[in-house]
Amino acid sequence: MKPAAFDYLRAGDAAEALEALHQEGGDARILAGGQSLFPMLNMRLARPKLLVDVMHVAEFGRIDDDGRTIRIGAGVRQAVLERHVDLKARQPMLAAALAWVGHAQTRARGTVCGSIAHADPSGELPLALLTLGGSVHLRNRKKRRVLAANAFTTGMMATQKGDDELIEAVSFPVAVPGTGYAFREIGRRHGDFAIVACAAVVDAAKTVLGIGGVADMPVRRELPLPADPAFADALNQFAWDLDARDDLHATGRYRRDLVRQLGRQTIEEAASCRA
């Protein structure tokens, strides 16, 4: 399997990349780590005319923590974020989710923003971004805009990103004291796509559960606290509302059960981690 022909541009700065996107529109694709894009190119599911390599744009290589959010630039590889100082303390869910992303060999290349842009329904990083209420920083030649994660993804591998835009960064909220975070996943083998992935945020007032791998994009819902008698029914309703389907890997019935069981376990873990 070999990619179809395309031009290649190694952008030296953001302006050069944005100008290329402006000129080529939907015929161009941003190439960052390439760990989602190359399988699609090799299988010819994607046939861009131009790849714009942004890995040499210095300003995209930054991780900035302003105390409220961790802003991760377009060129930051997943393995670099994994090794980022105190990530586990700054945002434990993000640290936990990263370990489930592909394999060490793909995390060494793949970027955080690339995973968000790819918007795979079973992707861990889109699920973590959605559940935490993070945001996506888009930019074209003329302007920047920021979208909340829940407004960014519109469906299976579909997002609000315009053809002339790139994701210059994504922002994850920093952990808040008194709030617990957890991430769990079930797959056939380590590194496989998630059959069901769960991300949970629990504080004194509410529980938020995000589910990936079931619907055609990650879904987040606020639930009663685990001790509330209404909790089990609310979680069960969530499992049904995701409209799980049968596929090669699992039945819809099994997926619903995972949402109920793994969802509860993830929430309980998050509740027990409240600091």
């Binding site: 390439g34 190359f38 090799n42």
Partner: peptide, 25 residues
């Protein structure tokens, strides 16, 4: 397509699937 790992190499010290990278990169 990056699944089997047979083509794994190191680029600038980091692991990489050689089938998920371009020569020009």
């Amino acid at each position: 397509h990056g699944v089997c790992g047979a083509c794994t190499v190191q680029i600038d010290g980091g692991l990489a699937r050689a089938c998920l990278a371009l020569a020009v990169q």
